[in-house]
């Protein structure tokens, strides 16, 4: 199954390589990874999406816990979360079909952020399903370029997003 893993790390050089190395040594391909600073400028949050066997992902997660630069790790796949991803999609468009594309963009509450004679660039924010849906609909017009940020997630409600990293340790 697909796992979403949220990791809080110190902003040290090499920390991304340390985390990624624990996935690659088991032959796991990280599907997406999004990194950025948190409310504390010394700390970054990584959101990693990875497909894999539950037992092995759990073992990798435990190893991520052990990294000195890692403060908190949580597998939030089962949590009730807000998930967002941004995509930029360059679609072939001319005067004959531009209005059709605009309609699709409107329905999805996406935006046109660049227009030229032969193309438009669509910006869309949403969860994975929404992104997949608009990509599907735009594909027939000809997608010339596509880039995605990877998913970021936050647990709904007032409780803190992450479980303390050492919860497993005291089990």
């Amino acid at each position: 199954m697909k796992h979403t893993i949220s990791i809080q790390v110190y902003n040290h050089s090499g920390v991304l390589a340390r985390v990624a190395g624990l996935f690659s040594r088991r032959g796991y391909n990280i599907e997406s990874i999004a990194v950025g600073v948190t409310e504390d400028p010394d700390i970054s949050r990584m959101t990693i999406v990875v497909e894999g066997d539950e037992h092995i992902v759990e073992q990798i997660t435990k190893n991520v816990h052990k990294l000195i630069d890692v403060l908190k790790v949580s597998d939030i796949s089962q949590e009730d979360t807000v998930d967002r991803e941004l995509a930029l999609i360059k679609v072939a468009a001319d005067t004959s079909n531009r209005s059709d594309i605009l309609q699709i963009v409107d329905i999805f509450r996406a935006h046109i952020v660049d227009v030229s004679e032969k193309s438009v660039v669509v910006e869309i924010v949403g969860d994975e399903q929404k992104l997949e849906a608009i990509i599907q609909l735009l594909r027939p017009y000809g997608i010339k370029e596509l880039t995605r940020t990877g998913k970021i997630s936050m647990v709904r409600g007032s409780k803190p997003q992450s479980i303390p990293s050492r919860r497993i340790a005291s089990a």
């Binding site: 190893n63 052990k66 005291s170 089990a171």
Partner: peptide, 16 residues
Amino acid sequence: DPAEIGKNVPVDIPIV
């Protein structure tokens, strides 16, 4: 090391 628990063999009573 919690990462050793259950790595290769299922464990009934883990003690970290």
